[in-house]
Design a protein around this nucleic acid. Structure first.
Lengths: 117, 117
DNA sequence: TGAACATATGAGCAGATATTCATATGATTA
DNA sequence: TAATCATATGAATATCTGCTCATATGTTCA
């Protein structure tokens, strides 16, 4: 939205407030967006994403690299799977995880950029 | 990183694991990134960001549009301020909030995009 | 100056979340 | 087939988070 279109006001009428309120996405979409970003809001999951930027790894190796318990890692991988940020591939006893969204780099880059501003 | 550079392996040696582990950003940076995304991980804050995409508003109007209590809104505005996602401007008794990072749209767009994939 | 107004802050609480422990599931191998 | 290995899952717990209530701060105006 260009600056010229933006409102500056205080004490909107209920009618005006209602118009602006109705411009918001529906609750479900808002909720889904929040859930999506929540996945990035945990250090362990961020570390897993950074690891997977380097390649495809099995759970055991992820556990070793993070120096965490296997169950803790599996729980977080589940969260990443459910939000479709990672994909997995089974090979015998092992399960290999890799990134599943080409925009992950982009999102993280924006975050890093913001922190350095 | 191009596909050809990516590793696929399991049962890394401690040495290999250590190399990959050390490629991760330092803990503080990981932590800061997670904190940053956590701000996007709440429906109320997402709604505030969507409102502010439409213009600059005082706390009272934000409260009216969201149909929430003023203190709840103020608490969330504080979180948005601390992460420098919004800026504010005082004018008499009122405080006007607006977006403070041109990348907010971009981040949200990526999120929405991911949800529709 | 004091009353009214706009916003911010702190404490308390209820619900969410990350880790751990115990155990289940599924695949390989002896 | 039994033992072992790799991973996943569920319950329990401690911590964190968002909201509400009470109240503080700062501004305007009578």
């Amino acid at each position: 939205m260009s600056d010229s279109e933006k409102k500056i006001s205080c004490n909107l009428t209920e009618k005006e407030a209602s118009v602006l309120r109705n411009n918001l996405p529906v609750d479900e979409e808002i909720q889904d967006l929040a859930e999506f970003f929540k996945v990035f809001g945990d250090p362990t999951r961020i570390r897993i994403l950074f690891l997977l930027k380097q390649g495809e790894f099995c759970v055991h190796d992820i556990t070793t690299m993070l120096e965490m318990q296997q169950t803790a890692v599996s729980h977080q991988l589940k969260s990443l799977r459910q939000s479709r940020l990672v994909r997995y591939r089974k090979d015998g006893k092992q399960v290999f995880y890799s990134l599943n969204d080409e925009h992950i780099d982009e999102i993280i880059a924006i975050g890093l950029n913001h922190l350095n501003e």
